[in-house]
Simulated assay, not measured.
Amino acid sequence: MISTSSPFTAELAPCGHVVDGRRHQENDDAGLLIDDRVYACGCRVIRHEYHDGSVRIKTIRHDGKVLADEHSGNHEA
């Protein structure tokens, strides 16, 4: 599994504020991709692409409210 973590600056968070944050990505070279963005305000966007090509994206505002939890394909999460 390949894992990288890097900072980002001045991106629009799910709450509407432009803030810095950190992005963590993992890839197993067999089709599993994980992309996790954590914003300085506390918001978070988690994207998983599974081996079967299905995708799940969960968007969470800094107060814990889930703004979106989207699933595509056949994966049951």
Rank of each mutant, 00 (worst) to 15 (best):
residue 1 M to D: 12
residue 1 M to C: 12
residue 1 M to S: 14
residue 2 I to M: 10
residue 2 I to T: 11
residue 3 S to H: 14
residue 5 S to I: 11
residue 5 S to H: 06
residue 7 P to V: 08
residue 8 F to S: 03
residue 9 T to N: 14
residue 9 T to K: 15
residue 10 A to M: 09
residue 10 A to I: 05
residue 11 E to L: 00
residue 11 E to W: 00
residue 11 E to Q: 12
residue 12 L to A: 08
residue 12 L to D: 05
residue 12 L to F: 02
residue 13 A to E: 02
residue 13 A to C: 09
residue 14 P to N: 01
residue 14 P to S: 03
residue 15 C to H: 03
residue 15 C to K: 04
residue 17 H to G: 11
residue 18 V to E: 12
residue 18 V to Q: 09
residue 19 V to K: 01
residue 20 D to Q: 05
residue 20 D to G: 08
residue 22 R to L: 09
residue 22 R to W: 08
residue 23 R to D: 00
residue 24 H to N: 13
residue 24 H to Y: 11
residue 24 H to K: 13
residue 25 Q to M: 14
residue 25 Q to C: 09
residue 25 Q to I: 11
residue 26 E to I: 10
residue 28 D to E: 07
residue 28 D to T: 07
residue 29 D to K: 15
residue 29 D to C: 13
residue 29 D to H: 15
residue 29 D to N: 15
residue 30 A to W: 15
residue 30 A to Y: 15
residue 31 G to K: 06
residue 32 L to M: 11
residue 32 L to G: 08
residue 33 L to F: 13
residue 35 D to W: 00
residue 35 D to F: 00
residue 35 D to R: 02
residue 35 D to T: 02
residue 36 D to P: 01
residue 37 R to E: 10
residue 38 V to F: 12
residue 38 V to C: 06
residue 38 V to K: 08
residue 41 C to D: 13
residue 41 C to L: 02
residue 41 C to K: 02
residue 42 G to N: 03
residue 43 C to G: 10
residue 45 V to A: 06
residue 47 R to P: 07
residue 47 R to K: 15
residue 47 R to H: 14
residue 48 H to S: 12
residue 48 H to A: 10
residue 49 E to H: 09
residue 50 Y to R: 10
residue 50 Y to M: 10
residue 50 Y to A: 07
residue 51 H to D: 13
residue 51 H to M: 11
residue 52 D to F: 06
residue 54 S to D: 03
residue 54 S to E: 01
residue 56 R to H: 11
residue 56 R to S: 05
residue 56 R to P: 04
residue 57 I to C: 02
residue 59 T to C: 02
residue 59 T to N: 02
residue 64 G to D: 01
residue 66 V to G: 08
residue 67 L to I: 10
residue 67 L to A: 15
residue 68 A to F: 04
residue 68 A to E: 09
residue 69 D to H: 08
residue 70 E to H: 13
residue 72 S to F: 02
residue 72 S to L: 03
residue 72 S to H: 01
residue 73 G to M: 06
residue 73 G to R: 06
residue 73 G to E: 03
residue 74 N to F: 09
residue 74 N to E: 13
residue 74 N to V: 12
residue 74 N to D: 13
residue 74 N to G: 13
residue 75 H to S: 08
residue 75 H to E: 12
